[in-house]
Amino acid sequence: MTNDLTTWLDNLLAELDGISVRRTSRRRLRVEVASDALPALLELLRGRASFVHLSAISCVDWIDAGQFELVYHCWSYETQSLVSVHTRIPREPGVYISVYDIYTPAAFFERDIHEMFGVWFEGSPDLSKFILTEWDGPPPMRKDFDSEAWVNQHFDWQDYHPDWLKDLEARGGGIAVPPDEQRFSRRTVDET
């Protein structure tokens, strides 16, 4: 039964123009679609193919390509499969259409993406600030925002002077390699 539905879905999607479909596993389907065709596709998925659950909308900032990638993860309780619909929009001006009229949960994800990436969703019910209420800097999840640099500008490292350190310094030792010089948990490290 499930397999029949899966085949049916594959066939349905295959008939549509301008989309590329790749089945990555039995329950996962990756669909790429042009941004202007996406709402119609979601409409189709929800209305005709039982994908009633919008699991999430993810946004990826492909800064080098000058694009935002929006990924709509839709789940069907009937076919028990997940379709991830990928689309790309230009990073500037970063405006897209809301799918709130198709999926209610989109309101949260669109608000979140607007706040974190600065994408404006036309028709979304509420794009007001949510998590970053008092933030007036650039949308922080954008790749060109360096959160660590911001933190270093605004906060001080704890300055420790324990006795053992004073003692070592008196004997000619002391801090040789501060953590910032060596650690790998920072993107800039091995670019140097």
């Binding site: 030792g173 002391g174 040789a176 953590p179």
Partner: peptide
């Protein structure tokens, strides 16, 4: 060798020179 410092994800490790 300071490998611990490299893998420390929170920059919690400082390498200290201990004379002697």
């Amino acid at each position: 060798c300071s490998t611990c410092q490299k893998v420390c994800d929170n920059a919690a490790i400082t390498m200290v020179k201990v004379p002697g």
